[in-house]
Write a protein that binds this DNA or RNA. Structure first.
Lengths: 368, 368
DNA sequence: ACAACGACAGCAAACGTTTGCTATTCTGCG
DNA sequence: CGCAGAATAGCAAACGTTTGCTGTCGTTGT
């Protein structure tokens, strides 16, 4: 691998001059000399060594996006948004998937710090591992002190994200829509307790309930992992608990997909017996049977703004907090609650714990 | 950001000794000294500078995966496979999405070369831009000469991939399955002409036809982009051409998803009027309505083997070519062809170009 | 004709590591 | 008691850049 020294030698100039030519500095170099250097660089297939350069400049033109799970379409879409902006601005984007493992996240942050990445964008929320978070935050602080830009797209241990989506309002809006359809007993699959974003969405659920003057029932919220398995498991948990419900709202689409799957296995009609709603509007949502009602998040836009924010910081400008709006999309998986459920709800105010399973009359343990 | 010099000073040792401690070299250092250095490093929050280290060692413990499209589940799954292996071996994985843009791919390769990544895994096939490919190959050759491992998971400009999936056999098997169901007029959505992998799959289609002694009809293959839009467009093209068909086999699932969507819009029954088959078995495939028949690829395994291969090369061992098997998964989107079509096929051997549109009797331009 | 200045080129230091070699200390053995 | 040799520690060079400073022209203005 040719170095600038060889380029300089071949061009018959000093390394200083050669450097000034190849790095497109604004230092004056005569056209003739410049041409000779360029020619030499071409001949030798010269590629500047980013390490040496970064060593000196303490910054490498890379923006990293840290995601929880690279197979989750939510993150894929956000990454693409970041790419939209970053590539245009001459940065290269690298994606790091923590697999929801705080230790791995720590490793990535360390790597990024040690290669002096210009910016790191956290697409997912914090991981709630106190010990490791302390370390991660220390790295981030050090990077920021070094001039790097750190941007969060979700709530995290240290506070509010720079750019985000109004999760709580989104869920609340979906709850309102469900209530509008006639539902009163709405279960909520909240995702993992450890994810900040999951907590926000849960808060949205409570807020939505409150707005409709429906009492919160702990029995109706179940916490699982943020994936399809979690959704299936959630259905089982809900059914086992025996508390009646006519709709289940999920903290993300993957959960809802799992719910749909499990419900289909159990031959429970959607939306006939139970309505199902997701959150995120990943591309699969419109393809399922029935198609999934969900809350659309401007994911790509979120990524784009995330980069914008980073770029702004790099330029020394003040950050500017932005919250993107969401939109409820009603598709085939939601409908009016079954008649029996309405009757039960309408005629009595049975306490949740002792309510009859009238909302799902056809269901008993044997059916599963 | 504390450097090793400060650590050494604080510990009261030379940088050499400090380096030997923090880099876990096997050079002997007395326990007492070691402890002092470690303590100092902890106090100062020392993080080794990967740039300086890489500058000297000419290798950074990073394996990069280059994909075409980060939102494509196919690639996400492969990346995850690479991560499985790489993380275990102490490498960090970074994903670079070229967006099928050869120039961007070139930039990534340059970056990777210039940061001395230990390995780069190409998940997708080559991009068929001769000029840029020459440059990319030059970079790769230089990296390899430098000790980096380059692994291809798909056919590319310079030849066979180190690890791959038997694309042609997979498609051929699907064609055989379709033929087994009674289909004779099978269209093929081939994806873009410029993708090597698309060509392989098209070859599989021809081979499958040949095995069933069905003549190849150029009218039945349509080339589009490798995404949902391509699938929808493919349906339109096929219908416009007027050549009858009872099944459409797609070169990937995204195309098939697009086909399913467009067919639903046109109210053409699947599999009643047309059977649809995909390729890849992305996770969405089992969730659509009807669920998608497809060819399952061991994607995660592919990624895992890809890393294995890279690791082997890094260790100086000989590469070992491996081809992973595929499996046909028949779900709800395929079935027997409609009766009318069978009659037409059975009673006459009308040349393709003048065949009546009997295979899709309910269809005319007005319907769309 | 001379001073002053602008345009260009080169020297060498610095970035933060690793490592070959040399220097020092200590141990144990003859 | 002297010495070989093991066990440690340190010196300094090297990796490939960038850039402040200095030096050398040639040109312009008076």
């Amino acid at each position: 691998m040719a170095s600038i020294i060889e380029v300089a030698r071949l061009a018959g100039v000093s390394t200083a001059t050669a450097s000034r030519v190849v790095s497109a500095s604004d230092y004056p170099v005569s056209p003739a000399t410049r041409e000779r250097v360029l020619e030499a660089a071409r001949t030798l297939d010269y590629v500047p060594n980013a390490l040496a350069r970064g060593l000196l400049k303490s910054r490498v033109p890379v923006v990293a996006v840290i995601v929880h799970d690279i197979t989750d379409p939510y993150f894929a879409e956000v990454v693409r948004g970041v790419e939209d902006g970053a590539s245009a601005a001459g940065f290269l984007v690298i994606t790091c998937s923590s697999e929801r493992n705080a230790e791995r996240e720590r490793s990535y942050v360390r790597l990024l710090r040690s290669i002096q990445a210009a910016a790191v964008v956290f697409a997912g929320s914090g991981l709630d591992d106190p010990a490791l978070n302390v370390e991660i935050e220390r790295h981030l602080a050090a990077m920021q002190a070094d001039g790097a830009a750190i941007v969060h797209l979700s709530p995290h241990a240290l506070g509010e994200p720079e750019v985000s989506v109004d999760n709580a309002a989104g869920v609340a809006a979906m709850i309102a829509a469900l209530v509008g359809l006639g539902h009163r007993r709405i279960a909520f699959l909240a995702g993992p307790r450890s994810l900040f974003v999951a907590r926000e969405r849960l808060a949205g659920y409570r807020r939505g309930l409150e707005a409709a003057a429906i009492p919160f029932d702990e029995q109706l919220v179940v916490r699982t992992s943020f994936d399809r398995e979690g959704g299936a498991l959630g259905v089982d948990t809900l059914l086992d608990a025996g508390t009646p419900f006519t709709a289940v709202s999920c903290a993300n689409d993957l959960l809802a997909l799992g719910v749909l799957g499990r419900l289909a296995e159990l031959r429970i009609a959607v939306p006939g017996a139970v309505s199902v709603a997701g959150f995120d509007d990943i591309s699969t949502a419109s393809l399922t049977a029935p198609s999934l009602s969900t809350v659309r998040l401007p994911l790509r836009e979120l990524g784009r703004r995330g980069f914008e924010q980073a770029d702004r910081r790099l330029a020394g400008e003040e950050p500017e907090r932005v919250v993107l709006p969401t939109e409820v999309i009603l598709r085939g998986s939601t409908g009016a609650p079954p008649i029996e459920a309405l009757v039960v709800e309408g005629t009595s105010t049975v306490p949740a714990s002792s309510a009859s399973p009238a909302a799902l009359p056809a269901l008993d343990a044997a059916a599963r």
